[in-house]
Design a protein around this nucleic acid. Structure first.
Length: 334
DNA sequence: AAGGTCCTCAACCGCAACGGA
DNA sequence: ATCCGTTGCGGTTGAGGACCT
């Protein structure tokens, strides 16, 4: 019945990875680059299936992954993105390049879901419009998949996009726009304004420190919370163009952190952010296309970034309209 | 201190999409 | 157009640590 699990073969190891296995995998990828996962177990001698190798790399070993606690900004971003995109963790993760989809998914399921539920209960029936919108989105993947379980995945995603765009439009048009979340304080708004600046700074900082601390040989102790970059001997030349561009951004972003309050400057900065993040994603998620990227392939992040910035400022309904309308197919279907 | 329960998150599974033949 | 191998994604599981009694 059905396809046999890919890891059912005799001799294929399952369960947690050992540091030795990590080192072998990282060394191999360092030499050959990620990809051709089928060949990885054969060529490395790892008794793991190709899928397991790929997962281990993408979720844990690849450089640039930030582990540990989620910041408040990240949290807010995830909440916003989840409301906008539903449970499309990969799409959400594409806006948080340091975080893996798995991490985000776990964080959502273990923390944010409960937190939001609490907040919802706390609101106790107030803001019903907002709640409806949010709760429907929180379970959008579930509910939409229930409703359209026979449709193809792309159809469901399109449906989700349409719903998201509709909701965004409704909210944008609502003068007394209820906050999706509890009303942000001024400080929170300021924090939101600098989401991208700070996150990209962190990326660059992380990479810098990673390069500075890059280990000469494979680490021996396994610390599951931070071994991805620092304990491994994954070594990529600091001269690599990708890192150069990220570090370039870092120097640029110093000014951007203080100039993210106007639309014009944010757009400029966004293009920088987009470029950097795109470069980053090229390595980590080469095939992925975000929902925003589908809507506007040339500048994958700017619209959502714009929305997030402006959401933080709690004004500029027109831009919400822009965003909704730029979700091409969805707008056509209204 | 010991046992039970809860929580977290790395890893697995299965399905869908992609891309080449 | 179809097949088939590979990759990506989202849901789920379970080991192990944290916390509680």
């Amino acid at each position: 019945m059905g396809r046999p699990p890919c890891c059912d073969k005799i001799g294929v190891k399952k369960g947690p990875w050992t540091p030795e296995e990590d080192i072998i995998l990282v060394s191999y990828i360092q030499e050959h680059g990620p990809g051709n996962w089928r060949a990885v177990p054969t060529n490395t001698g790892l008794r793991r299936c190709s899928k397991s190798c790929r997962l281990r790399w993408t979720n844990y070993l690849r450089p640039g992954i930030k582990r540990g606690n989620f910041t408040e900004q990240e949290e807010k971003m995830i909440i916003h993105l989840q409301a906008l995109l539903g449970n499309r963790w990969a799409a959400i993760a594409s806006y948080l390049p340091q975080r893996t989809d798995n991490d985000i998914k776990n964080y959502w399921n273990t923390h944010l879901k409960k937190k939001l539920k609490k907040e919802e209960e706390g609101q106790d029936g107030q803001n019903t419009l907002s709640q409806e919108g949010f709760s429907s989105n929180s379970s959008s993947s579930t509910s939409s998949s229930h409703n359209t379980s026979n449709k193809g995945q792309w159809e469901r995603r399109l449906q989700t996009d349409i719903n998201m765009a509709k909701q965004a439009l409704c909210e944008a048009l609502s003068i007394d726009k209820p906050e999706l979340l509890s009303s942000p304080t001024q400080a929170q708004q300021q924090q939101q304004q600098s989401i991208y600046a700070s996150s990209t700074e962190n990326i660059a900082r992380l990479l810098e420190s990673w390069m500075i601390h890059k280990p000469i040989s494979g680490g021996s102790s396994r610390d599951s919370t931070q071994n991805s970059c620092n304990d491994k001997k994954w070594i990529k030349s600091p001269d690599h163009e990708e890192f150069k561009s990220l570090l370039r951004f870092n120097s640029n972003s110093n000014s951007s952190t203080t100039t993210t309050t106007t639309t014009t400057t944010t757009n400029d900065n966004n293009s920088q952010v987009s470029a950097s993040v795109e470069v980053f994603q090229d390595e980590s998620k080469p095939r992925f296309v975000t929902a925003a990227a589908v809507a506007e392939e040339q500048v994958p992040l700017s619209l959502l970034e714009k929305w997030l910035f402006e959401e933080g400022i709690s004004q500029e309904h027109v831009n919400m309209l822009d965003m909704s309308l730029d979700v091409e197919n969805a707008a056509d279907l209204f």
